[in-house]
Design a protein around this nucleic acid. Structure first.
Length: 274
DNA sequence: AGCAGGACCTGATGGC
DNA sequence: TGCCATCAGGTCCTGC
């Protein structure tokens, strides 16, 4: 599942190859992901436009174009963006192929067809409810301890549900929420408001540490995620709890459990996560 | 308002 | 072997 570290990895890869690229043609195999225009209009509008910079907000990947418009991608669970210098590999799940003037191309594929692509006019981020409502970037200065401290206050939801709420902090998904809570020694089902001050501080630090480490490992590949050149990430080797039911906790040796919190499969250590 | 749960989608997996 | 049910999860939507 592409979460913040995976999207950031793709963004960095694409930044190295897409700047100054000019769209020559957009090939539409399946128009479902395109919003708000029809896929045909989307393709027409892009022709001749140049990519001037890349960006990311939470799990949204952004390509900024020379006329001020922006292409926003959300890969959801199984979306992929893969760049190729010449002929792009494609399969039955390839929905769009962006062709550039120099002969290179970018394919968008998505097994589950949940991924979405928007073309936004200048200042059009508010056309996407989820994007305009995003909370602070966890690795930016906007995300600081007093902010998280306030966000946890009075909230009756589980701390895991709070971490998954993109309005609170942008970019955490199921895998990193579990990893953050393990690092912070906090049970996922604990109510957010029940955390003591020390726990809140540790949680704040854990969010940044886990995300930074995962970015440095180029993300986590559990099954579907690939970077912009089609390669797997490496952070799956460093996961402490996610997907490790029945294995032993690396910190205390207890058997890792799986339960359901916030409607999601949730992995935790029943001994050292309090 | 805040919160919980279902819908969306398809491939992998497991039971019989 | 084949068929069917279940599960995976990010976001949006509905309803309590």
């Amino acid at each position: 599942m592409p979460e913040l570290p995976e999207v950031e990895t793709i963004r960095r890869d694409l930044d190295a190859v897409l700047l100054e690229q000019i769209f020559s043609r957009v090939e539409i195999i399946y128009p479902g992901p395109v919003r708000p225009l029809s896929a045909e209009q989307f393709a027409e509008k892009l022709a001749g436009k140049k990519i001037i910079s890349t960006g990311r907000r939470g799990k949204y990947l952004l390509l900024n174009l020379d006329d001020g418009s922006v292409i926003a991608f959300h890969l959801r669970m199984t979306g992929r963006l893969v760049f190729a210098r010449q002929e792009c590999a494609r399969d039955k799940h390839t929905h769009l192929v962006f062709h550039f003037a120099d002969g290179s191309c970018l394919t968008f594929s998505d097994v589950r067809k949940f991924g979405t692509i928007w073309l936004l006019s200048t200042g059009g981020a508010d056309q996407i409810p989820g994007l305009s409502a995003l909370g602070p970037e966890p690795l930016s200065g906007d995300f600081h301890f007093p902010y998280l401290d306030r966000a946890l206050e009075k909230r009756a939801v589980s701390v895991k549900a709070l971490l998954l709420d993109q309005r609170v902090v942008a970019g955490l998904g199921n895998i990193y929420a579990d990893e953050v809570l393990h690092r912070a020694c906090i049970r996922p089902e604990r109510k957010a408001r029940s955390l003591g001050r020390e726990e809140r501080i540790v949680l704040f630090l854990a969010i940044r540490e886990v995300l930074e480490e995962a970015i440095s490992c180029r993300g986590t590949t559990v099954s579907d995620y690939r970077d912009a050149s089609g390669s797997s990430g490496m952070f799956q080797e460093r996961l402490r709890v996610y997907g490790r039911r029945g294995e032993l906790c690396s910190r205390c040796g207890e058997v890792i459990c799986r339960s359901c919190v916030a409607g999601r499969g949730t992995y935790y250590c029943p001994r050292c996560q309090k």
